[in-house]
Amino acid sequence: MSGERDVLVIGFLSRWCAGIAAETAGVNRIKYSPNIVFINLPCVSRLNPSHVVDAFLNGIDGVLIGGCLPPGNCHYKTGNFKAFKRMYLLKKLMAQFGVEPERVKMDWFVTPQYEKIARVADSFVEEIRRLGPVMSRGEA
């Protein structure tokens, strides 16, 4: 790991559950890895696979997608199903291109699970550290 840069991870969160959980984690001063930056979206189904690939091309090493739980209880009724279909296919596609599909992770959160979101963020950053940067320094 030494000599290489530390990893960078983006978390795309649905603002209705996972986003609020991340807010609450902040309010409750829960510590989580500084390598992850959360971005709130209206819904995770807003995320197109090309956004994820753009993130990789710009030097982001992992993408965490936080949707709402339970699955049938999306604010927009079926947004998390749509996000699941897109990311599932994207992971299959990434594997064919030789890019580790583990770099994209989907997880689901209920509003009060602020401890879970910190835990998931930490473990995901650890996992990405194990995989290493998506491309080496200077090429990003």
Partner: peptide, 8 residues
């Protein structure tokens, strides 16, 4: 990638 979005 856009087509994956459409399938979703």
């Amino acid at each position: 990638l856009r087509y994956i979005g459409a399938i979703g």
